[in-house]
Amino acid sequence: MGFKTVVVHVNSSAETERRVRLAAQIVRMSKGRLVGAAMSGISRLLYADHATTMGVSMAAQCIDEARENARANLRRFETQCQMLDLPSFESRLLDDQAADGLVLQSRYGDLVVLGQVNPDGPVSPLEEETPEYVAMNSARPVLVVPYAGHYEAPFQRVLVAWDGSMEATRAVTAAIPLMEHAARVTLAVFNAGREPDRHGSEPGADMALYLARHGIKVEVSSQVTSIDVGSALLSFAADTDADLLVMGCYGHSRFREIMLGGTSRTVLQSMTLPVLMAH
């Protein structure tokens, strides 16, 4: 079991190189293939709108420039993969906005690696991946990498946010190939007494047993907090020196607007470690 195809978002941000390096390390663990996905940022619908308002020739020039920018990003990706001596990789260029392109590519991979939005970054809005949109609509789990910090795989100290939900179950199952390499896995259950029907008499015990059958040793930690769970989760991650957080992504979408749950929103905004999410 492993991630045989990992899709990584490639754009012009300064964080792309670190994101690609981490994705390459994950691919090497499972002897898989790394796919660098770069989007021009201009969808067919947007192109048609530009052609109407700007004129066909000017619109064609804009999309040619956007495509060349994406190609340049992919050339840097390929150079980095060669420098990393990665045996299997490929580039894909799509005429689409970043979020939609990544959602599409998620269907053909096992994991999507993308970056947390840097509010001070110079990247064009059309190049931004919008992690919450991708996490909510992706066919596969997503690994969101913070825009600050340095991270390495295999991850050694994994923190799992367990609340008995379908989303958390999917995230835990997706993270098994990463947890198999970890030296320590902690299953954190917050305020289990508030939802006894979901957790049972021994919160976390059933999931710990499930993971044990995969050869993963798990410590269950029951936590009680009066602050929001997202903040408590990030604080606990810092206290335990975790280098990967695994959690479900909660919310719903209405057209293009994403209404995230409070925990998911807090983590995506304030994350201090890579987060593997599934919806």
Rank of each mutant, 00 (worst) to 15 (best):
H9I: 00
H252M: 08
L114H: 11
M1T: 13
L159S: 03
N191Q: 12
P87A: 13
A171M: 04
G2I: 13
S253G: 09
D243F: 08
L245D: 12
V246F: 12
L187A: 09
I63T: 11
D206L: 13
A175D: 02
C81D: 06
W162N: 09
F3S: 02
A183N: 15
V113S: 04
A242L: 05
L209H: 13
G55P: 00
L74E: 04
D100S: 14
G262H: 11
V267D: 08
V172L: 02
F255K: 13
A48D: 10
A51W: 00
R157E: 02
R157C: 01
A37D: 00
T240F: 02
A212T: 14
E167A: 15
T130P: 00
T173H: 08
D120C: 04
R140A: 15
V123M: 10
F255C: 03
R18Y: 00
L244Q: 05
L187Y: 10
T272H: 12
Y147C: 03
T240S: 03
A72P: 00
R184N: 12
P131C: 07
T5S: 07
P119N: 11
M271V: 10
A192H: 14
T16D: 01
R75K: 14
T225P: 11
K217I: 07
E15G: 05
L233K: 09
K4E: 02
A161M: 09
A14Q: 15
A192Y: 04
A168Y: 02
H279S: 14
Q156M: 03
L209C: 07
S165F: 05
H199G: 02
D239R: 10
M58I: 12
A139C: 09
A135E: 10
A182E: 04
A188P: 12
R18F: 00
G248I: 10
S222F: 02
T263G: 02
M29D: 03
G55M: 07
G230H: 04
G115I: 08
P203L: 09
L34W: 02
Y250P: 00
L74G: 06
R157Q: 06
T52F: 11
M207D: 02
Q25R: 10
D239E: 15
E180T: 13
V145M: 05
G149Y: 12
L84M: 07
A72Q: 15
A24I: 04
Q80F: 11
F3E: 01
T173Q: 06
